[in-house]
Design a binder for these strands. Sequence first.
DNA 1: TTCACACGTCAATGCTGTTGTCATAAGCTC
DNA 2: GAGCTTATGACAACAGCATTGACGTGTGAA
Lengths: 235, 235
Amino acid sequence: MTERVVPEDRRRRRRPTRQGTVLSERAIVETALHLVDQQGAQALTVRKLGAALGADPSAIYRYFHSSDALMLALTDEMIGRAQQGYRATGDWRADLREIGRRIHACYQAHPQAAVLAAHRTTGREHEVRVVEAILGVLRAAGLPDGEAVRIYHAFVDQALGFAALDAAALALPAAAQAADLAVWHANYGTLSADTHPNIAATAPLLAVEMRRSGYPTALELLLDAIAARLDAAAG
Amino acid sequence: MTERVVPEDRRRRRRPTRQGTVLSERAIVETALHLVDQQGAQALTVRKLGAALGADPSAIYRYFHSSDALMLALTDEMIGRAQQGYRATGDWRADLREIGRRIHACYQAHPQAAVLAAHRTTGREHEVRVVEAILGVLRAAGLPDGEAVRIYHAFVDQALGFAALDAAALALPAAAQAADLAVWHANYGTLSADTHPNIAATAPLLAVEMRRSGYPTALELLLDAIAARLDAAAG
DNA sequence: TTCACACGTCAATGCTGTTGTCATAAGCTC
DNA sequence: GAGCTTATGACAACAGCATTGACGTGTGAA
C-alpha cells in the first residue's frame, strides 16, 4: 500500500539502475531538457527518456505521476532559466524589449514544453516576478494604471502567443516543418500576377521573410505604439 | 502500380463503405472538424475518424497521404470559413482590423481545432486568398514591398499567435481553465505592496483585464504603429 | 457483357504511455 | 555486522497510435 510516487524530499534509498545511473527528479528533468534540445521535440517520449537515462522507462513513474506532470516540471525549470540574470536598466524600451526577447527565446529553445506551457497561468514565483517587472516598467515610464494593465496584457500575451506559435512550428516533425517552409517557394512563388498580383510582386521577399520569426518586428511595432501612448500621456 | 491517393477531381468510382458512407475529401474534412469540435483535439485520430465516418481507418489513406495532410486540409477549411463574406472597403485600417478579428474569432469558435491548426502553412486555396488580401491592403495603403512583407508577417502571426493562445485556454478542461483564472484573485490579489508594489497597486484591474483576450488591445496598438510607418513613408 | 482496376477491408508492424507484479538491495534497528 | 522492511528498478503486458501491403469486390467504362 505504498504510493507509487514518493516526494523528492522524503526519499531515503537511492538505488542505482542496472546501468549505474542514480535517478532523481532533477536528473530526470535535466536529461529530458537535454534530450529535447539535442534530438528535437518528438524525441521526448518516456521510452527514449528511459534509454537516455540508462533506466527502464517505467522507473520514471516512480518520480512523476504521468508524462504530463513531467512536462510541467520541465516547464517550471525552463521559466527559471529564462529569468536568470535579468537586470532592469531603467530605460523602459530596452527593458521591455529584453523581457519580451527572453520569454520568446526561452520557449523557442524548448518548443515541446512551450506548446503545453505557454497558455497556463501558474502564479508561481518566477511568473510573479516577470509580471511585477513588466508592470513596474510601464508604470515607471508614466502610464496610468488602467492603461498600464491593458498594455501589460497585450505585451505579455503577444510574447506568449508568438512563442507558442513559433514553438509549435519547431515542435513539428522535421518533415512537416520543412514542407511548411517549402510552401513559400513551391506554391506562393509560382502564382500568376494576373490572379494574385500582390503575392507575385513580393514572392521572393515572402520566401525569405517567412523563414524567421515575425516576433522581432511585432515587438518593435508594439514598442513604437507604446511610445506614442506615452507621448500622449505626457503631452 | 496505382497511386494510393487519387486527386479528388479524377475520382470516378464512388464505392460506399460496408456501413454505407460514401467517402470524399470533403466528407472526411467535415467529419473531422465535427469530431474535434465535439470531443476535443485528442479525439482526432485516424481510428476514431474512421469510426465516425463509418469506414475502415485505412480508407482515409486513399484520400490523404498522411494524417498531417488531413490536418492541413482541416486548417484550410477553417481559414476559408473565417473569411467567408469578407469584402474590402478600401480603408486599410478597417480592412486589417476586420481580417484580424475574423481570424481570431473563427479560431475561438473551434478552439480544439485551432490548437492543432494555427501554426501550419497550407498553401491551399483559402490561405492563399487571405495572404493576397492582406498584402493588397498594405501595399495599396502605400507601404514599400519590403516593409509590407515584414508587417504582413507581424500582423498575421500576431492574429494566429493570439488565436492559438486564447484557443488553448478555451480548450483546457473546465477545471484547469477556472483554476488559471482564479490565480489572479487568489495569488496576485494577495501580494504585499512591500514586496510587489506594482502588482499590489493594480491587482483589481488585473483580475478584470485577464478575464478577456488581450488581442483587441494588441491589434489596435499594431494598427497605430502601422499608421505611424505609413505617415513616415508618405512624409 | 466483359473486364481492369479503384478503393474499401483486413492484418500486421512498430511505435506510444501506462500499470501490475516481482525481486532485490538500501537503510533501518538491534 | 545480522536481519528485516520496503522502496524502487525491472519486466512483461495492454491498449491505442499511424501507417502499409495484400487482397477481393463491385463499379464504371468499353
